Amino acid sequence: NQESVVAAQLIPINTALTLVMMTTRVVSPTGIPAEDIPRLISMQVNQVVPMGTTLMPDMVKGYA
């Protein structure tokens, strides 16, 4: 089963992602794949992401 990127903390809107903000977990439905974490660093979220929420492609500016 593929791991997806999950918020390790509350991420406010327009925050640039850092490694410490993200963790990985096997979730359903699947979100952004864990191997894309290096690509996500410094990208901004376009909404508030509560802790434990799976990051979906449409939540990250410039990802999709």
Results as ranks from 00 to 15, higher is better:
44 Q>N: 11
14 N>R: 07
31 G>T: 02
10 L>P: 08
44 Q>C: 04
16 A>L: 08
31 G>Y: 02
1 N>K: 15
36 D>P: 00
28 S>N: 11
2 Q>T: 13
29 P>C: 03
46 N>G: 06
8 A>K: 09
45 V>Y: 00
40 L>S: 00
9 Q>P: 00
49 V>S: 01
5 V>Y: 02
7 A>I: 02
21 M>P: 00
13 I>S: 09
33 P>V: 09
54 T>G: 02
55 L>V: 09
27 V>R: 15
11 I>C: 02
12 P>S: 09
21 M>E: 03
50 P>A: 14
24 T>D: 03
14 N>Y: 07
60 V>K: 01
58 D>C: 05
25 R>V: 06
52 G>P: 00
54 T>P: 05
43 M>L: 07
30 T>A: 14
10 L>V: 14
5 V>I: 07
12 P>A: 12
51 M>D: 08
54 T>M: 04
52 G>L: 05
55 L>Q: 01
62 G>C: 04
3 E>M: 11
49 V>D: 00
19 L>P: 15
16 A>K: 09
25 R>H: 08
3 E>D: 07
11 I>T: 01
58 D>N: 14
19 L>W: 12
50 P>L: 08
34 A>L: 05
51 M>R: 15
45 V>I: 05
38 P>D: 11
27 V>D: 05
27 V>M: 07
40 L>Y: 02
61 K>R: 14
29 P>D: 05
35 E>N: 15
49 V>L: 11
12 P>K: 06
5 V>L: 05
14 N>H: 13
15 T>K: 06
14 N>W: 08
3 E>G: 15
2 Q>G: 13
35 E>H: 14
1 N>I: 08
2 Q>W: 15
63 Y>E: 05
57 P>N: 13
28 S>H: 07
53 T>W: 12
21 M>R: 03
7 A>L: 02
34 A>R: 12
48 V>W: 13
29 P>F: 04
1 N>Y: 10
9 Q>C: 03
53 T>K: 10
47 Q>F: 04
11 I>D: 00
30 T>Y: 14
20 V>D: 14
26 V>E: 08
42 S>W: 05
38 P>C: 03
52 G>N: 08
32 I>A: 02
62 G>D: 11
36 D>A: 11
37 I>Y: 04
16 A>S: 05
54 T>I: 07
54 T>K: 04
22 M>S: 00
52 G>Q: 05
2 Q>S: 10
36 D>I: 06
45 V>P: 02
3 E>K: 15
12 P>C: 04
40 L>D: 00
29 P>K: 15
45 V>S: 10
64 A>M: 13
32 I>K: 02
32 I>T: 02
63 Y>T: 05
20 V>K: 08
46 N>H: 12
19 L>A: 07
25 R>P: 01
38 P>V: 13
41 I>R: 08
3 E>C: 03
12 P>I: 03
38 P>Y: 12
16 A>E: 12
19 L>V: 10
50 P>G: 13
64 A>F: 07
51 M>L: 12
31 G>V: 03
4 S>L: 01
1 N>R: 06
22 M>Y: 01
51 M>G: 07
39 R>Y: 06
54 T>E: 02
33 P>S: 10
50 P>T: 15
59 M>E: 01
40 L>F: 02
60 V>M: 06
35 E>C: 03
27 V>F: 02
57 P>M: 06
53 T>N: 10
36 D>E: 12
51 M>C: 03
46 N>W: 04
64 A>N: 13
11 I>P: 00
38 P>T: 08
52 G>R: 06
23 T>A: 11
39 R>M: 07
56 M>A: 09
64 A>P: 12
6 V>H: 02
3 E>L: 15
46 N>D: 06
55 L>N: 01
5 V>N: 01
47 Q>D: 12
28 S>K: 12
13 I>W: 07
8 A>R: 10
42 S>H: 09
62 G>K: 15
19 L>N: 09
52 G>F: 11
28 S>P: 03
32 I>P: 01
38 P>A: 05
25 R>E: 09
50 P>W: 07
41 I>C: 03
9 Q>F: 10
10 L>N: 12
24 T>I: 11
56 M>I: 08
57 P>F: 14
4 S>G: 04
58 D>W: 14
29 P>G: 11
50 P>F: 09
42 S>L: 07
41 I>G: 02
36 D>M: 14
42 S>C: 04
8 A>P: 01
39 R>N: 10
55 L>R: 01
34 A>H: 06
32 I>D: 01
21 M>T: 05
42 S>Q: 13
59 M>F: 11
45 V>T: 13
54 T>V: 12
50 P>C: 05
61 K>F: 09
58 D>V: 09
2 Q>H: 15
23 T>G: 07
17 L>R: 00
56 M>K: 13
41 I>L: 10
59 M>P: 01
46 N>V: 13
32 I>L: 14
47 Q>I: 09
63 Y>A: 04
51 M>P: 10
18 T>K: 09
12 P>H: 09
22 M>K: 00
55 L>Y: 01
45 V>K: 00
13 I>E: 11
55 L>P: 01
21 M>C: 03
15 T>G: 07
46 N>F: 04
7 A>H: 01
10 L>G: 10
33 P>W: 07
23 T>I: 05
40 L>C: 03
48 V>A: 15
39 R>A: 12
11 I>R: 01
11 I>K: 02
58 D>G: 10
3 E>W: 14
61 K>Y: 12
59 M>G: 02
56 M>C: 04
21 M>V: 03
47 Q>G: 06
